[in-house]
Design a protein around this nucleic acid. Sequence first.
DNA 1: GCCGTTTTCGGCCCGACTGTTTTCAGTCG
Length: 589
Amino acid sequence: MGNAQISKLLQNIASAYSIKDEAKFRFQIIAYQNAATSIEHATVEIEDLYKRGQLHNFPGVGPSIQAHLEELFKTGKVKHFQEVLEGIPESVFPLLDIPGFGPKKAYRLVTTLHLTNAKTVVKDIVALAKQGKIAAIAGFGEKSEADILKVMGEFKKGSTKTTRMVLPYASEFAKEIIAYLKESGAVKQAEPLGSLRRKKATIGDLDIAVATHDPEAVLDHFVAYPHKQRVIEKGERSASIIVTPGKQIDVMTQTPEGFGSLLQHFTGSKDHNIKLREYALKKGLSLSEYGIKAKDGNGKIRHLPTEETFYQALGMDWIPPEIREDTGEIELALKHQLPHLVELKDIKGDFHLHSSYPIEQSHDAGQNSMEEMIEVAKKRNYEYLGFSEHNPSMSKHTTKQILELVTKRRKFIEQLRLKYEKSIRIFSLLEVDILPSGNLAINDDALQLLDGAIVSIHSTFSMGKDEMTNRVLKGLANPKAKMLAHPTGRLLNQRSGYDLDWEKLFAFCAKNDKAIEVNAWPLRLDLPDTLVRQAITAGVKLFINTDSHASSQMDQMEYGVAVARRGWATKRDILNTWEYNKLKEWFEK
DNA sequence: GCCGTTTTCGGCCCGACTGTTTTCAGTCG
C-alpha cells in the first residue's frame, strides 16, 4: 500500500473521530492528522520501513498508530479502524475532496438525505440541490444550497483540492495579479505567499500579501479583477476569487508596520508555523499574523515590519522560505547554523541546451542556433555552457553515419570555441539515451569525441524498480557518462515517472563521481526537492540545467535553483557554480 | 494519540470568514 493511500486512510480516521465526537477525540484527531501529513510528505515508502523493521522513530507515528499500521500491512485491515469508521457511510469520504466540505457537513448531508453510494454521491447531491431539498435541512439554507451547486459544478470540471499549477506558471500568474493590484494606489508592497513563496514544484491556490493603510480600497479593486469568474469571500482584511475552476487567488492585507508578521504567517508551511508557535509558547510568547505578544500579558502586540525582525524576536536567524517545512530548519536557525543555500547568481553556466544544430537526432531539436544560445548565455554572465542535443537517431543511421555526424559537430564546435575564446567556454556534450538494455544509444567511438555525455531515459518507462535501477546504473557506468538527466522522468500533473532505487543510485553516483541533474523544465523540476536533499546527504554532486529547446527558455534557470534550494543545496553541491578549470578537470577525469 | 530547550506527565497554534444564527459551528489556511 502506497503512502498516499495510507495517508488518506489516517485522514479518514481523523474525520471519523470528528464526526463522532470532536471534543472527546480532540487530540486523537490532531494525532491522526499529523501522522497522515507526515506520511504524505515522507520520502520513503512507509511499507518499506515496516518491512525493514524501521517503523519506530517515524515522526508522528507513535506506539498506537504503529501497531495499527503493522496490522494493516499484515492482514490488510485494522480492527480499531473498522470500529472508528462504524456507522459512518462510505459516501462521506469522496465529499471531503470538495472545497467547503468538512467531515460534519458531509456527514449531515449524506445521513439526512440517505445517500450511501460513494460512487454517485456527488451526482446525487447535485440532483437533490436542484430540487431544493438541501435548503430544507436544518443548518442549511438557500445560500448554502446555491453554493453547493456552484462548487460541485466546478468540482466536476476538475477543481478538486488537489489540482495544482506548476511553479513557473504560478509565478508568472502571480506577477500579473500583483501588477493589477498595484494599479490600486493603496498598495504599498505586494508579495506572493504560501507554497509559491516557498517555491514548491506545484502550487494550489495563489496567495498574495499586500501592505496597505486602506485594505478596503485594495480588496474592492481586487474583487473587481476583470478575469475573475466569481468572488468566494470578501472580508475586512482578506478576500478570495476564482479565476477559472481550480484557480483560486487569495489576497491578505496588513499595515506596513506589521507586514513582516503577515508574510511570515501566510508563507507557512503549516508544519513550520505550528512548530514555531509551539516553541514560542514555551518562551511565553504567542505568535499570529499580527505580531508577537506575551501569552498571558496585557494583550499588547509587538508589530514587526520585516520577517528578519520576526525571527530575531524569537532568537533565531531568518529562514529562507524554500526550507520552511519543519525538517530541521528551526533547530538550526536557533543555533545559527543554517546552510547558505545556492543562489541564481552563483550559476556560471547551463549544460543542458538543445540547439538547432542538424545532427538528425532521435528526439526534439532546438529552435535556436548555437550562436543565438551563446548570446543569451553571455547576457546572463555565464562563464561557460554545454551543448547537448539528442544523439543521432539509431534507427535512421548506421554506426558509421553516426560517427560522421558527431565528428562533423565536433569540428563545428571547435570553430565556435575559437570564435568565442575571449568571452565564453564551450563544452561539447550530447544527451544520450539509455536503452532498455542499459547500453548507451551511440557507441564508444562516437562518445570519445565528446567532453561528456548526459544520459537519460526516454523510452520503456514501465520497468520494475530493480530492472530500471540496473538499466540506469549500467548506462552511467560508461566512463563518458557524466550526468543523469531528469532522473525520475516525471511530468508534473501528467505522469509520475519510473521507479528507481534512489539509495542505490545515490551511493553509486557518490562512489563513482557521477552527477545528477536538477532539470528546470517547468513540467519536470526533476530531481524533486526531497530527493535533492537525499542526494546531497549521500554526497552526490548536482548540475542545475534548463533543458532549453529555445534560447528564451534559458531564463527558466531560476526554477531549477528554487528546487535545489528546497533540497538544501549549497553552492558547493552544484557543479555548474564551479570555476571553469576545476569543472574541466572534473569532465576529463 | 504524540512528544520533550521548563515536561516520561501534561500539554497540544491562531485567527478570518460565512451562513444561519440570536452567540456560534464549520471550514480554511
